[in-house]
């Protein structure tokens, strides 16, 4: 017993010493990134650090909302750039938590593809640059179900054989947006009959859903726990590679588009380096390195030349022409409160 205690104390002391000793080598400048884990290759960060002689430090978060909460709790001013999703960019702009960038400050803005020229969540890219994007809909195991999968009826009005075999993402934004697309009503509608229709739809459909699961959305599909599962396109591709019969759907009513963006945070301690970093990521070769690593889609002209060829042919990345998806919109406070009540009622 005594030996155990002594050993433990010695180990702790040794570790405490190593803790105190870890200080990074000093570079001329610094760049503080607030990012998702495993969403940027380390080599790219090293390349940027070497090119501009800056020390790059990265902190990570696991969801847009967690990032917002951390910034709201007082972390604004610690980071230079963050990588929020589309609707979160809009929220950050509304909250005044982003620093606008003047025209011409970023040299490489011309590299952004024409089709992405001015997104609804940040018109004219005044605060952000596109990073990686894709879609969210659902995947179906075609070995279990042979009917038409390209309709949101699969989620909200499922045929008998799919009932009780559906996994939804545990995320209000994605589920309510899909519901609005299914009903063909505008997102964040203030019309009471439309909001009631959304509520009724979800209350009705809930009985057919097996689970709400975001953390292991891919695994429940691959293991066969469910036949239908809401999923991001990239995970849809991974799921298909693990189980060939899984097919990613592009419903005719529409799907959810998403785009993660690099934003300049307000009170950034190293604003100039943040601008450099944005320009760096707008160079085709650099953003293609991200795309090859993360396996989504970027929005920079000429990056195709540097991309893995198999990415282009992925069915998940090639929505059919003629129909389109929608970005999740940010509702006003009153509507958001109704949305919250609808969501609570689904999960009460």
């Amino acid at each position: 017993m005594k030996h155990l205690t002594q050993c433990t104390l010695a180990v702790v002391a040794a570790l405490a010493l190593t803790l105190g000793a870890t200080t990074a080598a000093q570079a001329a400048g610094k760049l503080s990134i607030y990012h998702w884990f495993e969403y940027i290759p380390q080599e790219l960060l090293d390349k940027f650090a070497a090119q501009h002689d800056v020390e790059v430090v990265m902190d990570t978060y696991d969801s847009n909302e967690a990032m917002l909460a951390t910034l709201k709790a007082g972390a604004l001013g610690e980071y230079d750039v963050a990588v929020p999703g589309d609707y979160m960019v809009a929220i950050l702009i509304q909250e005044g938590m982003l620093d606008p960038i003047a025209d011409g400050e970023r040299k490489n803005m011309g590299n952004i593809k024409a089709s992405f020229a001015s997104p609804s969540y940040d018109p004219g890219w005044k605060h952000s640059i596109p990073y990686q994007g894709g879609t969210t809909s659902f995947a179906v195991d075609t070995a279990q179900y042979s009917g038409d999968i390209n309709t949101t009826d699969i989620l909200f009005n499922p045929p008998a054989e799919l009932r009780g075999k559906i996994n939804m993402l545990d995320s209000q934004g994605e589920v309510l947006t899909m519901a609005a697309l299914h009903l063909g009503i505008p997102q964040c509608s203030q019309d009471r009959s439309q909001l009631e229709a959304v509520n009724d739809l979800l209350q009705n459909a809930k009985q057919h859903w097996a689970s709400f699961n975001s953390d292991t959305a891919k695994e429940v599909l691959v293991s066969g726990d469910v036949t239908v599962g809401m999923i991001y396109d990239g995970f849809g591709a991974k799921a298909r590679s693990e189980k060939a019969s899984l097919q990613y759907a592009f419903p005719k009513q529409g799907w959810v588009n998403w785009m993660d963006n690099v934003v300049l945070l307000k009170d950034a301690p190293n604003r100039a380096n943040a601008i450099l970093f944005m320009d760096f990521l707008l160079e085709p070769e650099n953003i293609a390195a991200v795309t090859n690593y993360a396996r989504y889609v970027d929005a920079v002209k000429g990056s195709e030349a540097f991309r893995d060829p198999d990415l282009a042919s992925q069915p998940e990345s090639n929505p059919p022409a003629g129909i389109s998806g929608a970005f999740i919109e940010t509702c006003d406070q009153a509507t958001q409160e109704v949305y919250d009540r609808i969501w609570t009622a689904v999960k009460k």
């Binding site: 909460a69 689970s211 953390d215 999960k347």
Partner: peptide, 26 residues
């Protein structure tokens, strides 16, 4: 419990989590 139970119903923990980390932001 959510991962095994399907998260179809809030537990106290997930209800409170939703207020800080979900859309509700309340």
């Amino acid at each position: 419990p959510d991962l095994l139970g399907g998260a179809k119903n809030f537990m106290i923990g997930s209800l409170i989590e939703e207020q800080f980390k979900g859309n509700a932001g309340n």
